[in-house]
Design a protein around this nucleic acid. Structure first.
Lengths: 333, 333
DNA sequence: CTGTTAGCGCTTTCAT
DNA sequence: ATGAAAGCGCTAACAG
């Protein structure tokens, strides 16, 4: 790989001049002929500035990190796509840090050793001390898809509206007994979705019964267990609102095992739409969330923070929408 | 962030000594008392070596890149998990470069500007000149899940065995008319899988008919179109072998639209197993491939290359296995 | 047992 | 219109 020094020897000009030409230094006055010669040799030698040197000098890596629980989860891949697209558009690359299989909170190293210029954190289990450590690090961070009492740097979806929309859909179909399989209650998104469920019930003069809420993790296995519990312990509801796509899949699996027919015996709506929801049989009615935009906006927030040196306030990305498919149907006696 | 210099001032010793202590320099002779004092202050100040400085000095980033077509594709997320796990185990982090939405061949920049120490390339469309550029860069690379005539640096699955296994399964079930929806024929994996299909037919005294092979891309949409074509133009086969999970999903979608019942009207087996195959209705019979191991071994290859400065020869990761589910059934007249 | 020195490749301020 | 010099934080060879 060619270095500035080598180029400078060929062109017969000082390295610093080349640097200034390449970085479009406006204050630089230079003969058009030398500029041309420089540009030409740069092209000929296929020169690429050494990123490591530049990083050290500028104290900046032009990398953002995103911490996610599991890269296999389609929810995160959509967020990542948005984040990456916005990052790239601004000259940054995105380092994906999947917590799957890693020591807890190890991601802090990304910040401490200057691996990244800023961090998007889409992890559920954020402890208070971690927030403090992040804040003391002086590097920008933003909590994606969740809130935390100790920080105002967040970008979230309108989970409450989504929960309400899902529940209203089931109510409109005439369902009376609607069970919600919620996410883990330590996750803000789960709380908001549950809240939306409650609001929809309330506005339609339904009684809220805590027995109709089963807590689950955002995983297939946990959704499966939750649904089995519902089947075992309760009179079967006529409709299910699953707080997340993986929970919905797990619930479907349990229903299948117990030969419960969807939507004849029970309707189900899932939160988050993904590429295979329309291929399931029956196809799954979902609430589509603007995950890509969530990623985009999270990066926008953090870049603003990096440039202006001040955190932008919490943002909510609106835009939950119902995608009606086969898994929900009118309630018939 | 504390620097070596700061620590050295506190301890009252030269920066380089601290460096040597932290890097476990065996040739270093030092008083236990000073070593202790150093270690203690390092811990107290929560010192982390500055990665950018180290990178520049060592001419090494301890990052590997992996180039994939699309991060949303579950096939790649399994490969990534394996690659990341092996990379982390060796002190490397993995930069995921998803080509989705990027300019073609732009990933070469990762190598040229020293962003990564080596590159795993799991992209289908690798042109000859790109291989040449990669080779001239002198940085290690390995082609993952594909071969290329101009390079021996590859790690692949046993796609031929997988194609054979899938086809044999359908033959054993008594199917006579088995159509293969193949991957793009410029991809080595597609060629191998087709080859396996042919071998299985041949060994069972079936005639191979090229009309029974429909070429497709490794995408849902393309699988969908391929299946529609099969439905429209041909007498319907009794069994389908889809060269990839996404193709299988697309085919299922087309069948659903045309109210073709699986497995009553037609059996289907897909290649690659993923988290939702068992939840589909009917659940999908698949060939499970060792994608995680593919990732692991690709990283092993490249690390060996980085350390020994010489490429390890092409590797095949064996271990395709049949997962029998509901989508394939005995052929009945 | 510890200090000195040089330098990785780049950017930026100041001097000419 | 261009050159010189300093320095980012670290490591490694060599000196004492």
């Amino acid at each position: 790989m060619a270095t500035l020094k080598e180029i400078s020897q060929i062109v017969g000009v000082h390295p610093s001049v080349i640097s200034r030409v390449l970085n479009d230094d406006q204050t630089l006055k230079i003969k058009d002929s030398t500029r041309k010669k420089i540009l030409q040799t740069v092209k000929e030698l296929n020169y690429q500035p050494n990123r490591m040197a530049r990083n050290l000098k500028m104290n900046k890596t032009n990398m953002l990190g995103i911490v996610i629980p599991d890269i296999g989860n389609p929810v995160y891949s959509d967020i990542i796509k948005g984040a990456e697209s916005e990052a790239n558009a601004n000259g940054y690359s995105l380092l994906i840090y999947s917590e799957h299989n890693k020591k807890k909170n190890e991601f802090l190293k990304l910040i401490k050793d200057n691996h990244v210029d800023g961090l998007l954190i889409a992890s559920h289990e954020l402890e208070h001390e971690i927030i403090l450590e992040l804040e003391s690090s002086k590097k920008p961070f933003v909590i994606v898809n969740g809130k935390h009492s100790s920080s105002d740097n967040y970008v979230v979806l309108d989970d409450k509206a989504a929960g309400k929309l899902a529940t209203e859909h089931l109510i409109e179909l005439g369902h009376k007994h609607i069970t919600h399989i919620s996410g883990p209650i330590y996750a803000d998104s789960a709380i908001q979705r549950l809240q939306g469920y409650r609001e929809a019930l309330h506005q339609n003069n339904y009684d809220f019964k805590s027995a109709n809420v089963i807590e689950s993790q955002y995983t297939i296995d946990s959704g499966y267990e939750a649904m089995k519990e519902i089947i075992k312990n309760h009179t079967l509801p006529t409709a299910i609102f699953a707080a997340n796509i993986l929970i919905a899949l797990g619930a479907l699996k349990a229903m299948k095992e117990h030969e419960i027919k969807v939507p004849d015996d029970i309707s189900i709506i899932g939160l988050h739409d993904t590429y295979f929801t329309s291929i399931l049989s029956p196809s799954l009615t979902t609430i589509q969330m603007p995950l890509f935009e969530l990623g985009v906006n999270s990066v926008k927030s953090i870049l603003q923070n990096i440039e202006d040196k001040q955190a932008s306030p919490g943002k909510i990305i609106h835009g939950a929408s119902l995608i009606k498919r086969e898994s929900t149907a009118e309630f018939k006696i």
